[in-house]
Structures are given as C-alpha cells and as structure tokens.
C-alpha cells in the first residue's frame, strides 16, 4: 500500500543535496555540530530532539531519535518523560492563550 510516509525514505535524507548541494552541505554540517557533545551532552540533546520530534509530529524524527536515544543509553522511562515535556509544553501553549480568551470575556461582559 502506498502512503505519504515511507520508512525507506528516511535513508534517503542524506541525498537531499541532489537538488541543492551547497545548502544541503551547510545544513548537514550544522546539524552534525549541533548534536556533538557540548555544554549539553549528546544524550541530553537526543532526548530534546525526541521531544521536539513529537511536538512537530515527524515520524522520521521519532523513529530516528528513538533509536538514537536507545543507543545513547536512555531508558523507556526517560524517553517517555521527554515526550511528556513536549506534550506539557503543547498543552501549556494552548492553555496560556486562554488568558486572552479570559481577558476578552471580561472585557465584553457586564
């Protein structure tokens, strides 16, 4: 069955330079550097990436950063907590806007 998302396509990610090389090269160099050990460990960055992958709901990134997290020694509990952080921020981001709704309600109510 054909679907828009095919796990095999993830393997082709490195080939996006075929249509625009210099930008792809810059992107991959930047991407590589971002995930190096730094002030944050590579493991912490992997967990952030996993959370963001869930926030933006990218199935490629979810697959990739689940494997990456396992390789870097994260356990299921830590990975699930990372997803909860994404979920909490998403929920919070919706809920914090309710202050606008509340303001408006109060503004136009007697």
């Amino acid at each position: 069955m054909k679907t828009y998302y095919d796990p095999e396509d993830l393997k082709k990610f490195g080939k996006i330079g075929e249509f625009q090389k210099s930008m792809a090269d810059k992107f991959f160099a930047y991407y590589g550097e971002v995930f190096q050990e730094g002030a944050l460990t590579a493991r912490e960055k992997s967990l952030i990436a996993l959370a963001v992958a869930h926030a933006i709901q990218c199935p490629y990134c979810i697959d990739a950063y689940t494997v990456d997290g396992m390789e870097k020694g994260c356990d299921e509990e830590q990975m699930m907590e990372a997803v909860h952080v994404a979920a909490a921020i998403r929920a919070g981001a919706s809920l914090v806007h309710s202050t606008q709704m509340m303001n408006k309600v109060k503004e136009i109510s007697m």
């Binding site: 460990t41 590579a42 493991r43 396992m70 390789e71 870097k72 020694g73």
Partner: peptide, 20 residues
C-alpha cells in the same frame, strides 16, 4: 561491558561510561 539489549548499536563509549 555494555552490550545493547536489542537490535541497535552501542552509542559513544565515553558518554555511556559517564552515565553508568
């Protein structure tokens, strides 16, 4: 010795050692 508990590769030895 750390062996991955599944079908994945071990991550950086240094990073895992620090965590362990």
């Amino acid at each position: 010795v750390y062996n991955p508990a599944g079908a994945f590769l071990p991550g950086s030895q240094e990073g895992l050692e620090t965590e362990f």
